[in-house]
Design a protein around this nucleic acid. Sequence first.
DNA 1: CCAAATATTATTGTCTACACTTTTCTGACA
DNA 2: TGTCAGAAAAGTGTAGACAATAATATTTGG
Lengths: 220, 220
Amino acid sequence: MSMNQDLRIENRDTLHLKVCNVIREAIIRGDFKPGERLKQSDLAEKMGVSRMPVREAFRKLESEGLIKLEPHKGAVVKSISIKDIEEIYALRSELEKMAVYQSVDLLTDEDINQLSSLVAEMEKADDADTFVQYNIDFHRLLVKRCNWERLNSFIGTLWNGLPQQTPHLLTGQIETSNTEHRKILEAVVKKDKETAANIVSEHIYRTGESLIESLKKEGK
Amino acid sequence: MSMNQDLRIENRDTLHLKVCNVIREAIIRGDFKPGERLKQSDLAEKMGVSRMPVREAFRKLESEGLIKLEPHKGAVVKSISIKDIEEIYALRSELEKMAVYQSVDLLTDEDINQLSSLVAEMEKADDADTFVQYNIDFHRLLVKRCNWERLNSFIGTLWNGLPQQTPHLLTGQIETSNTEHRKILEAVVKKDKETAANIVSEHIYRTGESLIESLKKEGK
DNA sequence: CCAAATATTATTGTCTACACTTTTCTGACA
DNA sequence: TGTCAGAAAAGTGTAGACAATAATATTTGG
C-alpha cells in the first residue's frame, strides 16, 4: 500500500554521512570537548556501525576544520585560541562581505521577508541562546544566494570553527548588533549592495573584537 | 648506526596519502580530464592497493576542490568554467592580500633573497611553462610566513582549482606581470606591507581579468 | 514498434579480519 | 633511583568479502 511512503527521512543518506552529522552535532553542541581524542572503535560501537564509516566521517570533519587527524595518532577535536578567533572573524569579515555583495541582487522577496522577521525576533529575544540561533540564521540567509560555491564553502568552514559556548559573552553587545542588523536589512531592502556588504563586514569585525575583549576579561 | 637515517622520504606516509598525492598530480597534470569519472577499483588496481585508501584519498581531494563526490555515483574530476575562474581570481586577490600583509614582517632575509632570484628567473624565462613554475613559487613564498592556517589552506585550495593548461594564454601578459613582480619585491624589501599587499591584490585581479579575456577570445 | 516493468550488471558502500605503528608497561642494569 | 631496552597492549591502517544501490539491458504488454 502507499502507507509507509517515506517516513524516515534521511534514510537514503549513506551511513558515513549520518555518522558525520551525528559527530558534528556532538562537537558543536560541546559533547566532545576541544582537545578530546575521538576513538574510532568507541564511536563505531556506540553508534552500532563498523569503524569504516567513522573513518570516512573523520575525513570530512577534518576538511570542515572540526577535528585534526594525524596518521597513526587519531582524531582530536580542535581547540581554538584567541588567535584563531581573530583569524576566523577577520576572514569572515572579508568573505561574507564578498558573498553579501553578490547575494543582495538575487535575494527574493520571500528571503527579505524572512530576514526582516529574523531581525524582529532578535530584537525580541530575551536570552542569549535564542538570539545566537536567530543570528546564525540571519547571516546564513544573507549570503544564501551567492553562487560562488568556493566562497560559500569557506564561509561554512569558518562558521563551523567558531566556539559555540560563547553566546553569554555577547550579552553586552546585543543592543549594538541589533541596530547594525537593522541597518543591514535597510540596505538589503533598498538593494544597495555596496552598503550592505560594507556594514556586514564592519559588523562582523566589530563583533570579533568585542568577543576577544570579553574573552580576555574572563581571564581565559 | 646513523647511516640510513631518513632516506626513503615519504615512506612513512600512510597509503591513502600517497594515493592522494598520485591522483592529485595526475589531475593537475591533466592526465585525468575535467568531467572524467574516476572508478575506485580501476585506480586501486592500477596502483596495486585496495579500494579503501582510494576512497579516503577521494574525500581529501574533494575537500581540496579537485573532484566532486556523490553518494552511490562516484567521483568526477571537476571541470571549471569562466565563472569559476572569475571566482578563483577574485578570492585569491582578497585572500592573498591578507596573507601577504601578515607575511611581510615575518619574511627572513633568506626568503627575500629567494624572492629576488625568482623575479630574476621570471624575467629571464623564455618559455611560458618555466615562467609559470617560477610564478607559482613566487606567490607561494610571498604568503609562506603567514601563520593563519585557515587562510593558507583556503589559498592552497584555490591554487589547486586553477586550470593548469593555460600558461600559453598568458604569453602577452608576461611583461606586465614582471614589472608588477618587481614592484611587489621592492615593497617587500622595504617591509612596506600595505603596499605589498595592495599590489599583490591588484596584480592577481588583473591577471584574472586578462586570462578571462584570452579565454573568451579563444572562443572557448 | 514503443513504453513500462523487470531482470541483470556494474559500481559504490559497509563489514570483518588482519597487519602495522605507536604507546604503554615491565624489568634489567647502571 | 633513573633510564633505557624490549615486550605487551591499544589503536590505527589496509585488504578482501559481502551488501546495497544506481545504471543498463531485457522482456513484456499494448
